[in-house]
């Protein structure tokens, strides 16, 4: 998955050292060192909130929250981040174990605890994100490597909050990112159907149907920082120096050292 991510970075023309990954999923140090981005293991569900701070204090950063507990503990940050259109590329690792897909029951050994109780219906993440204002939504399984890399690249170059949902059961708050349950992903992959540009309303995952994957939405909307600069520029006029312009040199972080 990380290799795919790196491929996405490369395709987008983003250098790893501009990239900051706040995550509530445990990465392996070797991975981080190998790819060369900055990584923060945050408290559960707070990767987007943490990323909001990183981005606002240094707007030049490319902030890519990788999150697993996003839709449970971090649901609020997800909806509000989308609404604000904070410039973040959110990678949402969907940990939920779908007991049944396309009428077929999962026969593979599954993790004991998943983010929701087994009898609950999960969120339709692209739909929720889209309805809150996220500008880009896509869903892939971890095995759709090419498509995933393309989506990541595309999202990285969009201005605003993008959501890429990856069906990859396994890695969570306690176990590392490499810990994907390969059999289960294969099962999902085999039972998926690509439908780009599908209305996100229709991509909820249900026991009867195939998992719909694809790039669903891509739109333009003013980001938080742009809106901030426009509004304050209007009100304060000359007195106001736009925030975070000139590739972030004016950001709150100041110079290193």
């Amino acid at each position: 998955m990380i290799t795919t991510f790196a491929k996405g970075l490369e395709k987008a023309g983003v250098k790893p050292n501009q990239v900051c990954v706040p995550s509530d999923i445990l990465f392996e140090p070797a991975i981080v060192k190998h790819f060369g981005f900055d990584y923060f293991h945050t408290t559960r569900g707070r990767a987007i909130a943490f990323g909001t701070g990183l981005k606002l204090a240094n707007p030049a950063l490319k902030v890519v929250p990788f999150t697993g507990d996003l839709m449970t503990v971090g649901g609020n940050h997800f909806v509000h981040g989308s609404r604000r259109n904070m410039e973040l590329t959110v990678i949402c690792i969907n940990n939920f174990v779908y007991r049944k897909i396309a009428g077929k029951a999962v026969s593979i050994e599954t993790p004991k605890f998943s983010p929701y109780s087994t009898f609950e219906e999960p969120f339709n993440i692209p739909h929720l994100g889209n309805s809150c204002g996220a500008i880009y939504t896509a869903r892939w399984t971890a095995l759709h490597t090419e498509e995933l890399a393309d989506s990541i690249a595309e999202a990285l170059n969009k201005k605003g909050l993008s959501i890429i949902e990856i069906l990859a059961p396994g890695p969570d708050y306690y176990t590392s990112i490499s810990n994907v349950n390969a059999d289960l992903v294969r099962f999902y992959y085999d039972n998926s159907e690509i439908r780009n540009d599908e209305d996100p309303r229709n991509v909820g995952i249900t026991p009867e149907n195939k998992i719909i994957v694809g790039k669903f939405t891509s739109k333009e909307r003013s980001t938080f920082i742009d809106s901030y600069n426009a509004q304050l520029g209007n009100v304060l006029g000359e007195k106001f120096t736009p925030y975070g312009i000139e590739s972030g040199k004016k950001g709150a972080g100041g110079k290193n050292g």
Partner: peptide, 8 residues
């Protein structure tokens, strides 16, 4: 009755 909530 059991419920697993969204957070603590």
């Amino acid at each position: 009755t059991f419920i697993q909530m969204e957070d603590e």
